[in-house]
């Protein structure tokens, strides 16, 4: 980190825990029991969050919701700005996604371009009944007409700032930091 940048924690571990629990409750409420829901996380941290939300759904209402991951690398619109990237892991439930309610899960919603790519990827994998979006942090500055259905925290940011999510599974601790 350079000398004149500073980071501030905007969510700590317990805040993230509560936000995910609330999202789980909202999913159950909005989907009337989540009976045909599939949670698809966008690697890396979205996939981790999808698993956590899946566990919460099971704790709250004892529903077992299929959880998978959806890599969107091959559908990105900025592939040609950098050398080819390594691919993430895509894992879909064995029964496929046709006629299911897909809840996409990501850590930060920013320009909306990742979600646009995810919608394209889904289109090649099947025809879900509907697609919804859950994010831990919505930091604004959308560049496409996309919005989230479930938001852990709305975080007003300047476009020059960075939002970094840390999760215990990949980073050893839970936190969301705003880096100026």
């Amino acid at each position: 980190m350079s000398e004149n940048s500073s980071s501030r924690a905007v969510l700590e571990g317990p805040d993230i825990h509560r936000a995910l629990t609330r999202i789980a409750h909202e999913i159950l409420e909005r989907t009337k029991g989540a009976s045909d829901v599939i949670l698809l996380g966008i690697p890396t941290r979205g996939a981790t969050l999808a698993h956590r939300i899946g566990e919460r759904l099971e704790q709250v209402e004892d529903v077992k919701v299929p959880v998978g991951s959806l890599d969107i690398t091959m559908y990105r619109d900025d592939l040609r700005t950098k050398p080819a990237r390594a691919l993430g892991h895509t894992e879909l439930p064995a029964d496929g996604i046709d006629d299911k309610l897909i809840v996409l899960v990501d850590d930060v919603l920013f320009s909306g371009r990742t979600i646009r790519a995810a919608l394209d990827a889904l289109n090649d994998l099947g025809r879900p009944r509907a697609v919804q979006l859950a994010v831990l942090v919505d930091r604004g500055h959308r560049e496409l007409p996309i919005r989230a259905d479930y938001v852990g925290k709305n975080l007003p940011t300047a476009k020059s700032e960075k939002v970094k999510v840390f999760l215990a599974e990949t980073d050893g601790r839970d936190a969301v930091e705003l880096i100026k």
Binding site: M74, L79, R80, T81, K82, P83, A84, R85
Partner: peptide
């Protein structure tokens, strides 16, 4: 082909 052509060339 992806790794050779997929990114910036």
């Amino acid at each position: 082909l992806y790794l050779l052509l997929g990114g910036e060339i």
